[in-house]
């Protein structure tokens, strides 16, 4: 279990390289490592852009299956309409709107918990192919 803080842009790189090396340690192949690292990059960047700061928890899962779970938590503005935010191409900042839907496709599961004004928690997971 590894906890990392996001406070500045450089932390995005730190978080995703840590996730990549943990994924490698768990046994994920190069393609999955790259997928995980890219998804982490998107979600960490969202924290940096929308909430300024937050925390990332990386866990190795072994029961019932081997895999990785990464939890992103921030106390930022929260997401008003989660369904909309998950849509391809929707962005509140004039960006590409690829982060959330992209991360969802790159991982095996993604769960968003958010309350406007209170913050956002996003949990993603990927299982090791059997």
């Amino acid at each position: 279990m590894t906890t990392l803080q996001i406070k500045e842009e450089a932390d995005i790189v730190r978080v995703r390289s840590t996730a990549r090396s943990i994924a490698r340690g768990i046994g994920f192949g190069l393609v999955d490592q790259t997928r995980i690292s890219t998804a982490v990059s998107e979600l960490a960047r969202n924290i940096y852009v929308y909430a300024r700061e937050g925390e990332v928890l990386i866990e190795e899962l072994s029961n019932p299956r081997h895999g990785i779970r990464i939890t992103f938590t921030d106390k930022g503005p929260g997401i008003e309409d989660i369904e909309l935010a998950e849509k391809d191409g929707w962005s509140s900042s004039g960006s590409m709107g690829k982060g959330l839907p992209g991360a969802k496709r790159l991982m095996d599961s993604m769960e968003i918990l958010s309350k406007p004004g209170e913050g956002t928690t996003i949990i993603v997971a990927k299982w090791l192919p059997e």
Partner: peptide, 13 residues
């Protein structure tokens, strides 16, 4: 790289 290409496609860019 091949793994990057796959990822870009999944990302939807």
């Amino acid at each position: 790289r091949p793994e990057v290409a796959q990822t870009i496609v999944h990302l939807g860019v």
